[in-house]
Amino acid sequence: MSKHLLNVYLVIVLLSPLTVHAQEFKLILKEHLFYPGEIVVPTNKKLKLLIENQDSTPEEFDSFDLNREKVLYPGRVSVIYIGPLSPGRYEFFGEFSPNTARGVVIVEEQDNADH
């Protein structure tokens, strides 16, 4: 049984390098606020958030809903890959400014999504 389990693991591992096309969405962090504070994205797509931190201090993007944590270095554009997501609201915030740096990813059908 253990040999079979290991073989299943190894097959899955070999499939892992497959890349998936991701649609891009841009956000800005300025004075500890995310702009836009809400983005509408399509369902069941791989997405690429490009977040430019225009503040002079680092921030940490955190979202249990999206299952992501990422340091946003000052003066740099950070990339966060998310999805595919089911319809719904997915909140995120900045760990260092949790009261101001807040946002939400709203997942809707393709016709209503931002481009």
Binding site: I12, S16, P17, T19, V20, K70, Y81
Partner: peptide
């Protein structure tokens, strides 16, 4: 790899 970039993370 960056989380979420590929089909699975490593």
């Amino acid at each position: 790899v960056e989380q979420g970039r590929l089909w699975a993370d490593w």
